[in-house]
C-alpha cells in the first residue's frame, strides 16, 4: 500500500532522466512549457480495482487545496451497474489528466494556463480573466470556474506538495492504494513499470490528448461519456435538487 509513496520518494531523489516509454509531445507544446523540473514527468496510475469509493481523495483534495463548496478538483464517479441480473458498483476516480497535448492550453487567450516542464498543467489565477474557454476545451470536465477567485480552477497534482517532495493529497490519503503517483521519466518508478507492464488505458483516447493519468481495470463502457441514467445525487445548494431526484424516480 505504501509502495507508491516509497517509490515516489526514491524517484524524486534519483531524478533519473530515463528513456521515455511514452510518445513525445509536439515540439511546439514542449517549447511553450515553463517552470518545473524537466528531469521529471509526473503522472498517475489509478488502479480502479482497488478503489473502494470512499471519497477520501475527494475530501483530502478539498481540504488541501481549499476548493470551494460544490466544486471538485477530483471526485470518484460511482456507478451502479446491473449486468445479466447481477448488480455491482463501479468506481472511477476522475481528475485532470495533465495531458501531453492538453487542449485547454492553446485556447487560453491570456497565457494564464500553461504546462510546466514536468508536465503539470497549472493556472495562474492572477492572470486568468475567467473566460472559461479552457473549461469548454477540456474533454474531461476537469476544469471549472472557482467562484471565490472567479478564475479557472483544476487539479494541479498538488504541485506545491510535489515540489516539497510530498505526494498529492489524494494519493497520500487513498486507503486502497488505488492512486499511484510518480515520475514517468524514471524507468524504475512504479508508475513507469505499471505503464510499461500493465498496458493501462486512458480516458477518451480518441481525443488525442495523450493523458498522463492511466487506469488499470478501466472498463471500456466508462472510457468516454457514460451511457447510463444520470446522477441521482447533486450538491444541496443546487436549487432544483429535489425536483430532479423526484423526476429520476418517476
Amino acid at each position: 500500500m505504501d509502495q507508491s509513496r516509497r517509490n515516489f520518494c526514491l524517484g524524486f531523489g534519483a531524478a533519473t532522466v530515463g528513456a521515455a516509454t511514452l510518445s513525445p509531445a509536439p515540439a511546439e507544446a514542449v517549447a511553450a512549457r515553463e517552470g518545473g523540473d524537466p528531469a521529471h514527468r509526473w503522472g498517475m496510475v489509478v488502479d480502479v480495482r482497488k478503489c473502494v469509493g470512499c471519497q477520501a481523495c475527494t475530501v483530502a483534495c478539498i481540504m488541501e487545496n481549499d476548493v470551494p463548496e460544490n466544486s471538485f478538483r477530483t471526485i470518484v464517479s460511482t456507478y451502479e451497474v446491473t449486468e445479466q441480473g447481477r448488480s455491482g458498483t463501479y468506481m472511477l476516480p476522475r481528475l485532470c489528466n495533465h495531458c501531453e497535448d492538453p487542449p485547454c492550453i492553446p485556447v487560453c487567450p491570456t497565457g494564464a494556463t500553461f504546462q510546466r516542464e514536468d508536465g503539470i498543467v497549472v493556472v495562474d489565477n492572477t492572470v486568468c480573466v475567467g473566460c472559461a474557454y479552457c473549461v469548454q476545451a477540456c474533454p474531461y470536465d476537469a476544469r471549472f470556474i472557482n467562484h471565490e477567485t472567479q478564475t479557472a480552477d483544476k487539479c494541479t497534482f498538488c504541485v506545491h506538495r510535489v515540489e516539497a517532495g510530498l505526494l498529492p493529497a489524494c494519493v497520500e490519503t487513498c486507503v486502497g492504494g488505488a492512486r499511484i503517483f510518480g515520475d514517468l521519466k524514471d524507468p524504475d518508478s512504479t508508475v513507469s513499470k505499471l505503464v510499461r507492464e500493465r498496458d493501462p488505458r486512458v480516458l477518451k483516447p480518441e481525443q488525442g490528448t495523450q493523458p498522463r493519468v492511466f487506469y488499470i481495470g478501466l472498463d471500456p463502457k466508462f472510457q468516454g461519456k457514460v451511457d447510463g441514467t444520470p446522477t441521482l445525487w447533486r450538491p444541496s445548494a443546487q436549487p432544483h435538487a429535489d425536483a430532479y431526484v423526484g423526476k429520476e424516480h418517476a
Binding site: S77, E83, V135, F144, T231
Partner: peptide
Amino acid sequence: MMDTSIVEVINVTREVAWL
C-alpha cells in the same frame, strides 16, 4: 448486445461556464 444498465450514483455536475 449484453443487457447492461448503468445508474450514475455519484458524480459532479459542472455548471455552465459560458453564461
